[in-house]
Design a protein around this nucleic acid. Structure first.
Lengths: 144, 144
DNA sequence: GTCCATGCAAACTGTTTGCACGCGC
DNA sequence: GCGCGTGCAAACAGTTTGCATGGAC
């Protein structure tokens, strides 16, 4: 999806146009393997294109989300964080001391969810597991 | 905790005072086994005490959270939802069609988290698993 | 040329805060 | 009586929206 033509095709398929701004926003999103909030994403995009506006970033994120290209996470109860979707589903740990976000994989969770959805008759289309606590470093610091 | 003396003791232990407002807010929270957002909670509380204010609700929820009496959930990416803590940890499924929230238990998740935290050296103090999708009813409706 | 996408500023929602008064202890 | 807790209104942060212009197709 990192390539222009892939994004172009995906946009056309959903009735949207490929614009300079949308291309740039998706590029920055994919380059930064982090969970950017709207402001950080905006400043990175703005650094490369001074005319781009914050609302355009929000609007692009909104349609990317509808298209399934971007996921939204509510980390740490504050504002939203965005990331380009990846192949394998993953989850997040956020350190309450330093704020660092650690990604992890947990196939057992997927299995548990699958079993549950069958038993309860649910159709599960998204799953977010968010852990909070202390990361290894902060854990040591707190020891004293 | 539903009783006045329990709340009183818990508040005193953390250097807070028992007020008419805090007692009422906790009562309403415990009566409603739902995930109330601040406005709903406020209106229920307000119905019994016309002088109470929304900021008092927010302030009470804030100290209840610090005290570990109340949990906050970000359901459906909108505003926060609050609920009195329960004995067993549980998780949430939210139907994207009707908005209904279904609680469920999944001990496998706890185990997966425990294994992960040992391996990665994390100290996990909170875990939220939020599933999205279609509930049994809405799933049938969407079939056609 | 058509109509969607953009930039700007203003609106909006959920939540927090400053201040003077009131009440728990 | 001391000092925290309250109500009110104003501030605040993040996000969305109305409108006129610009650009994708």
């Amino acid at each position: 999806m990192a390539d222009r033509s892939g994004l172009h095709a995906a946009l056309r398929a959903t009735g949207h146009r490929l614009t300079r701004q949308r291309l740039l926003i998706m590029e920055v999103l994919e380059e930064s393997q982090e969970h950017l909030d709207a402001n950080t994403l905006f400043s990175r995009v703005h650094a490369r294109d001074l005319t781009i506006s914050l609302s355009t970033v929000y609007r692009a994120l909104s349609i990317f989300r509808e298209m399934g290209l971007v996921e939204v996470h509510q980390l740490g109860e504050e504002h939203a964080h965005f990331e380009a979707v990846q192949d394998a589903p993953h989850y997040h740990f956020i350190c309450s001391a330093c704020g660092r976000v650690i990604e992890f994989y947990a196939p057992q969770v997927l299995e548990a969810v699958r079993g549950l959805s069958q038993r309860a008759g649910l159709k599960v289309t998204s799953s977010h597991l968010l852990l909070g606590g202390l990361c290894p470093e902060c854990r040591l610091l707190e020891k004293d």
